[in-house]
Design a protein around this nucleic acid. Structure first.
Lengths: 198, 198, 198, 198
DNA sequence: AGCTAAACGAGACGGTACGTCACGTCTTGGA
DNA sequence: TCCAAGACGTGACGTACCGTCTCGTTTAGCT
């Protein structure tokens, strides 16, 4: 679905990158992943669905996982921002709940799980995934946690890195094993690991 | 002639399954995974390395992930049994530490992570992995936890299912993201989630 | 269909060749050829259909074409004997007509065409086919022709070998190309090549 | 740079069919057939020998017999044209002699016999072989015969179809049975079947 | 009556080729 | 300069048969 407007033919780009082709590829990849699973996510299928030539994909993305990574980064920025300004205990708890919902329900959540999985199979994917997604988020999360601790909102029983692993780990593990995150799991974890003020 | 292996030639199996071929396939798959990664784990490569015909693999395993699953099940039974008899708080803590070491260092640990990853890509793999590995282990773990609780060894802050997710999740998440599990993470988690007697 | 009687189990043979298995194989091969074509004529399919183990086939026949050859030889002896006693011009003409009908209509005719075809593909088949089928028949045909010539029944315009090629060639060629042998072709050929007395 | 073949590397084709690959496949198939027989004529062997990918073969030919058919059609057009302009009795006789030599000596002759044989095994092959080779040639031959008859060059004892079967049949039959066509067979047949003027 | 030897059904085995799919690279020709 | 289109070499897929090889059973014929 490359066309984004009512014109029968997309305005072709000439010698600049075709933005319509770019978003068509991202959408096609995401749609294929959600609708038919990772097995159907081939470069040829993406090109077919996006109405784009295969070469156009190879020109701009080194592999199909980078497409997913682009999608994930854009979607996460919109739907799951890390709260960094004046974080409170309840703000952090809300963030954890949002994260659980994101993994369980959002199409981009499937995208994250897929990338985490593919990173186990391929070192290159792992490197990209860490560098472009995990590390930046982790830095923001650590900052969130540090500020909250300094403000006396929370007093975690572990260092910031380990605290984030202790909080996110169970949520991710439940998502990976197809288990719905229990309602009280997040709250009890926050209570016992973060030790909020109230 | 009491000796059964005086010839270097492998004893052929007749019309019964060839045990030597079976273990050769399991070893070949494990070796390929550890040495060259999941990308090199093709059925043809396994057959080549095991000195076995491709058809022999397809005769006994519906897919290559079932081979890994067989390997994982056999190896886990040997190297990471769930302690079910008279479990103590320190026994559970030791189990968690062993699990972290298993994921980090054992070849079969890579196998587990690979299966967990592949389960994200393919529903069939997910079903097999749950049915043949995760569920049986989870049942044993729940029993371990229940007995320890009844014996007063521990008094967990969550139900048994959620407790196991809270304990195993961070370990798995660290392994998946390539982070070494911090020394104090497991112990502090056990302290705050399980609340042992002592 | 190995069983030839009402007993649920065929009487097993002990340490002598099992005649029931032999004819079951011949029939299965012929049936498969006629019903599903040469492509379906695999050793495994023959064994399956005959209710016989593959090894039993390999024990007695070096290849599947030898099975067809056995069938052809038995059937030809019954249904298309070469008239050698006191041959007449009309006897030879009748033989040619029978041969045309045999190729067109008899299951064993398909068998002959198949063997002639397979002989083009494989020298071993060609050797067996010549030695066991073509040569013996040719010798009998030449004798038939020679006797008829000596008796003054016919006075062929070519030597006996070439005469047989001139008479049989068109019939075989029509069968190979799927053309029905025209009614007058055989008769006119006989008239102009054999030059019968009357 | 006017030269197109200054590099040893073959010029790649872009998005048009690669003519070099096409002829390489035809030659490889013919060579394999002549050198090692039909048994060695596998698609994989053709691809290997032609230096071409298997998929390139499957992209353009539905089966290996179509490759042979292409070869045969091209070669026959060059080496064994049917004389259609002002055919004479001796012209027809020469055509028959050329046909016999073609079958006996020319590589493409083996190709024809192979196709005729394979047509016995597979109805699809038979259909293609008739439609693309036998029928067009037969039409040209019938026209040749009709013209010669109308010009009074010959007065055949049979209709044109049956006449061609009577003339070609013995030649093909000899070739199929590995018998060298006797020198006088063709001439005597022509004399007695065609009845030329002189 | 028991023993030996052969043929049997069953079917696992190491192989080869099949025809299909997707990969990533390349070239053409149009905008 | 970018793009759609698509042919190409590469290599793995899962399947079908090949011909060989045990297995354990059955039976004929000899001790």
């Amino acid at each position: 679905m490359p066309a984004v407007n009512s014109q029968p033919r997309r305005a072709r780009s000439g010698n600049r990158r075709d933005e319509a082709a770019r978003v068509a590829v991202l959408h096609a990849a995401d749609d294929l992943l959600v609708e038919h699973g990772f097995g159907a996510l081939t470069v040829e299928a993406i090109a077919r669905r996006a109405g784009v030539a295969k070469q156009t994909i190879y020109r701009w993305w080194p592999s199909k996982v980078e497409i997913l990574l682009d999608t994930l980064i854009e979607d996460t920025a919109k739907r799951l921002p890390v709260p960094t300004e004046l974080p409170t205990a309840s703000g952090i708890r809300a963030y954890l709940r949002d994260f659980a919902d994101f993994l369980a329900a959002d199409p981009a959540g499937k995208c994250l799980l897929t990338l985490l999985a593919e990173a186990q199979h391929d070192p290159g994917t792992a490197a990209s995934f860490h560098e472009r997604y995990l590390e930046p988020r982790r830095i923001a999360e650590i900052e969130m946690l540090t500020r909250a601790t300094e403000a006396g909102e929370v007093s975690p029983v572990l260092g910031p890195e380990a605290t984030m692993d202790a909080l996110l780990g169970p949520i991710v593990y439940c998502a990976l094993t197809g288990v719905a995150v229990p309602r009280d799991l997040v709250d009890t974890l926050a209570e016992n690991i973060l030790r909020p003020r109230a």
